[in-house]
Design a protein around this nucleic acid. Structure first.
Length: 552
RNA sequence: UGAGGUAUGGUGUAAUGGUAGCACUACAGAUUUUGGUUCUGCCUGCCCAGGUUCGAAUCCUGGUACCUCAACCA
């Protein structure tokens, strides 16, 4: 046990060393989303690292919005991000915005010009691209590179004051156009954007780039450990360069491998596209891998926490099997999700021919079988029932344990019944099963008899129609053997590639119209309300569920 | 042909010079009033080649593969 706890990932080692050596007194991390989309499963990992590490070592975490690109950002996202972080169970120390630092950043920018460390460039985007060179050929200096500090300052102020149009000029750091690291070939610090910012409004028409903003923001807040994903590792030298050049608080950046999940899209850009094209109902569509999406799907914050603890932290590219996530969800839900019996639409009627007419028996069924002494629900049993069509098969193979002609099955919590006769309609479709029940098999009376199958049922007399507007698991519970690995979102949108996992037993959360959470123990039922605006053919199915559940 | 990063079963992650462990998955079996859960069993691994050493996943040398970087995105 204790040895288990002693295993540290590389970030924990770094932090412990820094704490031990006195390099820092306590740690301060930050979670820096750009408010241009909703948080997804990948962010769950980042959240767990940035907040979790601080928590573990008695430090704090700032929530900082990286809002340096006004054309992509919006307060809708700012609010949604906060909500998701809270749902996940984390509390930030300070709520910060990169835009809070625009004035300071600008001051530093003028100072750099005065030091001859930056210049205004008149090249077009194309010229700049050409002159930047490639990974194995050096770049060429801009013809405007040697403007005097005075001229640069004058120009820069004119740019700031809006004398130029978008793209006309750009502000660059003067480093080295032949540098082997592409990031050092005179990186752009400011670009002109006559755009309305969600916080600073129209105050600025120039906006700083990520590289010129992030390190300084960390520094201003005195972030001790700035932890980000691997693709930023090539930026670290530049991060350090700005901090060193400006002589400000030395925050340090560390990188870990971002999370990828099999069969799952984890790109904000593509998720945004799904939303914008109306291919999903929104960012919180349960098919989406967003935190609000999986939340509607029934995932719990605890399950996500468990998952993040299991996947570990390293610098190797990580493609996690989504089955581990699902295992975590089941693990969590299995212990505490309430269970209700349910049949999906198009059920089969079962008539018990030897049941005393009009008789009703009530059963106390546990809300959670794992806790048989816990809360109960009352379920009425009568001589006319409905069962799920999938629980009956006329020409059943040997391995089919549910109801078949002349076969026996246990109705969950009640009697064993035997199927004696099929009733079919004109098309030959089975519409009713005439069965007999075995009175001696009533639970609690006499000897217990076992049969292979146990199925759900509802009493037609008491069945309550419950219209649900949430469908469930269409995406992640698709039969994985049917879809190619790395299923692209285009395939995702192709209904042919989706196979609903029928009978996959897992507790799930669904919501009815009034927003009440109802949990069923078998999923594979997908439900959508009649008013659904989704254009996706798979989802345009109206399903009314019948449930034996009777509130109080 | 540049710079940076990473290599341990199918997937992910431990072992820091001393028997390659754990989890998920797959498979097999037991239990089961959910074909769930639980329990048991089981297959599969140190990128390659040299070297140092009594002993190497670990140290050294040389290869190889994969990822990231050439947005006025973050």
């Amino acid at each position: 046990m204790e040895e288990e706890a002693r295993k540290l990932n590389f970030l924990e080692e770094i932090i412990e060393d820094d704490l031990k050596s006195g390099k820092v007194e306590s740690i301060l991390t930050r979670f820096p989303p750009e408010p241009n989309g909703y948080l997804h499963l990948g962010h769950a990992k980042s959240l767990c690292i940035n907040f979790g590490l601080a928590q573990k070592y008695g430090g704090k975490t700032n929530l900082r919005y990286d809002d340096t690109n006004p054309t992509k950002e919006d307060t809708e996202y700012v609010d949604a991000i906060k909500e998701d972080i809270k749902w996940r169970g984390f509390q930030w120390e300070k709520e910060c915005y990169a835009s809070d630092y625009f004035d300071q950043l600008y001051e530093w920018a003028e100072w750099m010009i005065q030091q001859g460390l930056a210049y205004v460039d008149d090249q077009t985007q194309e010229q700049m691209r050409e002159n930047r060179g490639t990974v194995d050929t050096p770049g060429k200096n801009s013809p405007w590179r040697d403007r005097t500090p005075e001229e640069n300052l004058k120009l820069f102020r004119e740019v700031r004051d809006g004398k130029y149009a978008d793209g006309e000029k750009v502000r660059r750091a003067k480093i080295d156009m032949a540098h082997p690291k592409m990031e050092f070939r005179d990186p752009i610090m400011y670009r002109i954007k006559h755009a309305h910012h969600h916080r600073t409004g129209d105050k600025w028409c120039i906006y700083p780039m990520y590289d010129y903003t992030h390190g300084q923001s960390d520094s201003i807040e005195h972030i001790t450990h700035s932890i980000c994903t691997l693709e930023f590792d090539v930026h670290r030298p530049l991060y350090d360069w700005y901090i060193k050049t400006l002589g400000i608080y030395p925050s340090h950046q560390y990188e870990f491998a971002r999370l990828n999940l099999t069969y799952t899209l984890m790109s904000k850009r593509k998720l945004l596209e799904l939303v914008q094209k109306g291919l999903v109902a929104g960012w919180d569509d349960p098919r989406m891998p967003t935190l609000c999406g999986v939340r509607r799907r029934g995932y719990t914050a605890e399950a996500l926490k468990m998952f993040c603890e299991k996947i570990g932290v390293s610098k190797r590219d990580q493609l996690m099997d989504i089955q581990l996530l699902e295992w975590c969800v089941r693990q969590d839900l299995n212990a505490r999700a309430n269970r209700y019996m349910v049949v999906s639409d198009d059920p089969i009627k079962v008539t018990l021919t030897n049941w005393p007419a009009g008789q009703v028996e009530w059963y106390d069924c546990p809300l959670n079988p794992a806790d048989p002494e816990g809360a109960k629900r009352k379920v009425p049993f009568t001589g006319e029932l409905l069962i799920d069509r999938a629980d009956f098969m006329e020409d059943a193979p040997n391995k089919f344990f549910r109801l078949k002609p002349d076969g026996e099955v246990r109705l969950k919590y009640t009697y064993i019944i035997k199927c004696n006769e099929l009733v079919k309609d004109a098309e030959g479709k089975v519409i009713e099963l005439k069965c007999t029940y075995d009175p001696s098999t009533k639970p609690g009376s006499g000897e217990w008899r076992s049969v292979k199958g146990t199925i759900h049922w509802v009493s037609t007399a008491y069945a309550k129609e419950l219209e649900l507007r949430q469908y469930d698991r269409l995406f992640t519970l698709a039969d994985m053997s049917q879809v190619p690995e790395y299923m692209d979102y285009k395939d995702f949108l192709n209904p042919e590639s989706l196979v609903i996992a029928k009978g996959y037993a897992e507790p799930a959360l669904l919501e009815d119209k009034s927003g009440i959470a109802v949990q069923f123990e078998r999923v594979g039922y997908y439900i959508i309300d009649k008013d659904s605006t989704s254009e996706h053919p798979v989802f345009n199915k109206t399903t009314a569920l019948k449930d034996s559940y009777r509130p109080e």
